[in-house]
Design a protein around this nucleic acid. Structure first.
Lengths: 337, 337
DNA sequence: TCAGTCGATGACAACGTTGTCTGCGCGTTG
DNA sequence: CAACGCGCAGACAACGTTGTCATCGACTGA
């Protein structure tokens, strides 16, 4: 288990100079076929592999790698993004480094710092914290940064968002149209941008319909399926439970469904985010659907566009949502025993 | 948008030598507090960030990065692995580069090559192709390689597998115990190692029970949900459809469920791999459960163990499976109209 | 008082690679 | 036949950093 061979080793073995090896390895012209063959022979015998680190340093270029900072790959929304980013990156000869921020601003900033020291050529971030002024210098030094799913303050960078307010409004209107008036909300803390926006869309639709929001039915703050389940159980055991619920994301939807299972009492449901098997459940779940792959692609396209010279002012792309009625939004609420 | 500042720029601004900046940046001792303060000042003013590429080259060490080659992050099995690997990597100060091999040996080999040129310190691979002799040199040069989910030929490297045969046997025994005799199989091509093993477990259990396998009920080859759905439809329209089916992975299970939906005819089902909401479906799905996170952790532990001097001979870790009866394995088949 | 020690700092080389420049031998051309 | 061009090859510097060694002044102790 000795160290890796370098060009010097190859040169020595082939009886040529270092530079000639470099020429052969990089398919430069100006090497006699016979010499090149000798070099290639030595390369395979020694198992030589170019050192990308040294190459990049010398060429003053960065490793062909983009950083992707997300909350958790296990969430299908993020893995959908990740996959699309990876696909586009591959087309552009880049690799993807994934960091999970765990929704923690400190972890996010640490990850970003490490990625930047690693000299990534571009950065795709689902921001956890609000302020990203610390990236100003980097952007000025030529690293394209794209924020996905949520905007970032303190920086004028590209952003890819979805129509949160519109989607939530549609969801709420759907429930209102089916006669629901006591509508609850279950989801993550409203400090998360998307949650705030979706709740805003909910309130807008309610206000437009002249229906007052019962604040005791708004249960935000859960961070995972279990907490959404608990919140739902609380809703169900109220004296006047909601007849319908809007959930702010797929985790919350699933938590609600778990709480509802086996219960006699139930309520209508529309969830933000589609999820696998939503249409296969006993009561198929009506959702506000959008396309994570589209978000990943749009973000990656922006990054690689910037890398190849796109100098337009910072873009804000807003992706559409679509209400997919499957049944759960149309059932009449029969709350309470 | 000028180039990034280097230590030379910082040194110039602080009126010290390059080396002093290096000392401050690396928290080496031997710098007067006052000098250090001046340097730090210059660092923040210029927005200096250490160049990990140059540092690694000089120190003759590799970037603290491990490569993870999987089939598709969108599959929860792989994203579960990815997340666990990332978590352990973070603990060890490493980042994770993810490459999707798409089950294509050529793509896998290309990804691995790129990762190695990038000087990753370790490699976690879910192998797509069978032969990995091309990694022999690398392993000899000191790059720890761990194969996950499937073994690799031609190399003596660490492996983390699951008890495919045992799990499949349990699944089949469960179906046999509930009176099923005409049992079908739906899944990926048997050339995929895990599929082959799981089918072997199925056959072993059938043989042990003295039940002949009707080969027309074995439908392997589908690579995604849609193809599994098609295969199932074919099974259902047979003159003598199966009364039960064993699926070789979560994609196949979901395809089968989709085909079954709304159909009058049905059959019992046990699937390999657990999946979200399996317990929430109209007929909760009985599965052979195992833990992707455990696999990721085990793999990562092996890599980081090797990196810190573990010299044991190549390990083969086999993770257990557990049958989770939820109902779908116990229903009586009522095939055909 | 003088060697010896110590703390702070800098000069220099080196990591593995590539860009630039130079040199050599040979054939072509005016 | 001198001059030139061309194909091939190597010497050397440089990328941004860190390890080693040298330097210098000040302080210590006998």
């Amino acid at each position: 288990m000795r160290a890796r061979p370098t060009m010097v080793d190859v040169a020595e073995m082939a009886g040529v100079s270092l530079k000639t090896v470099s020429r052969v390895v990089n398919d430069e012209r100006g090497v006699r076929a016979q010499t090149a063959a000798r070099v290639r022979e030595a390369v395979t015998v020694l198992g030589y592999r170019a050192n990308d680190t040294a190459r990049n340093l010398r060429r003053r270029q960065r490793p062909a790698t983009v950083g992707l900072v997300i909350e958790d790959v296990r969430n299908p929304f993020y893995s959908g993004i990740a996959r699309a980013v990876e696909e586009l990156a591959r087309v552009h000869g880049h690799m993807v480094v994934i960091a999970n921020s765990e929704e923690d601003p400190a972890a996010e900033q640490k990850a970003v710092s490490t990625l930047l020291e690693r000299q990534v050529t571009g950065l795709l971030i689902v921001p956890a914290g609000p302020d990203h002024g610390y990236l100003l210098d980097e952007i000025r030094h030529g690293t394209p940064v794209v924020f996905m799913d949520r905007p970032a303050q303190g920086v004028g960078a590209d952003e890819v968002l979805i129509d949160n307010v519109g989607g939530a409004r549609h969801a709420t209107e759907h429930l209102l149209a089916h006669g629901h008036r006591r509508i609850g909300v279950v989801g993550d803390p409203p400090t998360v941008y998307t949650v705030g926006e979706r709740v805003r869309g909910f309130r807008e639709a309610m206000a437009a319909a002249g229906v007052a929001v019962d604040e005791s039915l708004v249960r935000l703050g859960g961070r995972d399926v279990v907490q959404a389940e608990t919140a739902t159980q609380e809703l169900l055991s109220m004296a006047h439970p909601p007849s319908a619920v809007f959930t702010t994301n797929n985790r919350a939807s699933i938590g609600v469904l778990r709480a509802l299972r086996g219960r006699e009492s139930t309520f209508a449901l529309v969830g933000f985010d589609d999820f696998e098997l939503a249409d296969m459940l006993p009561v198929p779940v009506t959702v506000v659907k959008h396309d994570p792959a589209q978000m990943g692609r749009a973000g990656a396209e922006l990054v690689f566009g910037r890398l190849s010279g796109d100098e337009r002012p910072p873009q804000r792309i807003v992706l559409p949502t679509r209400l997919v009625p499957r049944g759960s939004g149309e059932i009449a609420g029969k709350p309470g025993p």
